[in-house]
Simulated assay, not measured.
Amino acid sequence: MTHAAPTKDLHELARRISEGCTECRACQFRCEFLSEHGTPKALADRFLTTGTGRAAAFECSLCGLCSTVCPMGLPLKAFFLAMRRAAMDAGRISLVPYRARLDYERFGASRLMSLFRLPAGGDTVFFPGCTLPGRHPDTTRALLAHLRNCIPDLGLVLSCCFKTTHDLGCQDRFDVRFGALLDRLHAMGVTTVLTACPNCFAVFTEYGRELTVRTVFDVLAEHPVTRDAHVRGSAVVHTPCPYRGDAHIQERIRLMVEDTGLDPEKTRQDGPLSPCCGEGGSVGLLRPELAAAWGAKAVRRADGRVVVTSCAGCVAFLSGHARAVHLLDLVFHPARTMSGTLPRPKGLATYLHRLRLKWRALAHIR
């Protein structure tokens, strides 16, 4: 797993954006970060002429909305990530504000928390990610049981995809850690990874070498969950940023929301235009007011309706301001999800639930 020199990448991207950006402000109009720091052209020109501005990229959520709305098709997200990488390589950024999140990531991949289990003859594993098993334990267990009914020789891998490290621009560290994870999966004979987390899906899709990566929503569409009752009411579907450019996944999720009985109402910020929940890029640890402003946009879009999303992180971030629910909770526990009685552990309890899932898998997946 290799990448070009960050400074070279950044200069090439900056020149492309300086020459291609027309300063139409389509991206700036939708982004708190660009509203404060200027157009992509202004940022690119600043770097090319003075060599400054790299640290500003840590106030960008890396949500990709700017790239989506750019009429010139410029790689704006890649530009801001390259700025982060160059700033990290130059030693200009302290990791102290991000220490808790990096520790959470590291602990998730530790020997205590991790598990690599694949039955004989199997080649597919479920990779639930860090957040879903801890914050949505009942749903994770039900999902795993359903997946194993569909794929009897399905394995389970509990670890971390290291997206925080990646998005902070620590590319060399990411290459080592995610590379070691891939090496272990290949040594096990894994050819397919099923993800429930959009961030894990994005990382495995980009860096997973020859692995086939699918979401659990594909399996659920092929093998629907039988439910005795449906829920009712209007909702808006919040698209997690990693799914922004994938129309197939967006449509799959919308149909699943409809199948629960909820009515997903259309807005001008559906699908690829969904605002970031505010958690992206770890901006909230550096500029909490910017992260809150993005989250506020998502809440205003909901306008009192239920927000359904397929990301456990989005649920956690939005729940303080709106009624946000996870689609998988709705699929497996519709009544308890809508009544608010489905447990959502927090803090240290999330680690206990992740360990319980590991212990259960040790006993049942051989």
Rank of each mutant, 00 (worst) to 15 (best):
G155Q: 05
L102F: 03
G313R: 02
A57Q: 02
G108V: 03
E279S: 09
C170H: 06
A298Y: 03
M88N: 11
L286F: 14
R54Y: 07
R301Q: 02
L132Y: 08
A4Q: 15
D89K: 11
S61R: 05
D175T: 14
T239Y: 00
A56D: 15
M188N: 08
A196L: 04
D263S: 11
A235N: 00
L143W: 00
R15H: 13
L348R: 15
L95G: 13
S61V: 12
T350I: 04
G91W: 00
C276L: 04
C31S: 10
M113G: 08
T205A: 14
C197G: 06
G304R: 04
A82N: 08
E19P: 02
H3C: 04
K163Q: 10
C241D: 09
P137Q: 06
L355A: 10
H11Y: 11
G189C: 07
R101H: 15
A78I: 07
H186C: 08
V219E: 13
A293Q: 14
I249M: 13
T212P: 00
D103T: 12
C70N: 00
H166R: 15
P133E: 09
L13I: 04
R300M: 12
A302G: 06
V216W: 00
P137M: 15
R252E: 12
G91Y: 00
R111I: 13
H230S: 04
T124H: 02
L154Y: 05
V257F: 01
E251L: 14
D103W: 04
A57W: 01
G208E: 11
D9K: 05
G64K: 02
R184N: 09
R25H: 09
D218L: 13
A56E: 10
M113I: 15
H11G: 07
M83H: 05
Q269S: 13
T205W: 11
I17L: 03
L342D: 09
D103N: 04
H37T: 10
L290F: 10
D89I: 09
S35Y: 09
Q269K: 03
Q269L: 11
E265N: 07
E59P: 12
K163Y: 05
D228I: 05
T267L: 05
Y98Q: 05
A335G: 08
L181W: 02
M113F: 14
A87R: 01
S159H: 15
C63F: 01
A322C: 12
R106C: 10
T212E: 09
G108W: 00
S94W: 01
R173M: 14
A82M: 08
S159R: 04
T50E: 10
V315G: 00
G51F: 02
D172N: 09
V299E: 07
D270S: 03
G340A: 01
T49L: 15
P137F: 04
R360W: 15
R148K: 11
R244L: 03
V299G: 05
G284D: 10
V176T: 05
F79H: 07
L355D: 03
R209T: 05
L147R: 09
E289Q: 08
L74F: 00
T337E: 06
R25M: 11
H37R: 12
G108A: 14
G64S: 10
T260S: 14
D259F: 07
G108Y: 05
S114H: 03
V325M: 01
S110P: 06
H353F: 12
P345Y: 01
I365P: 13
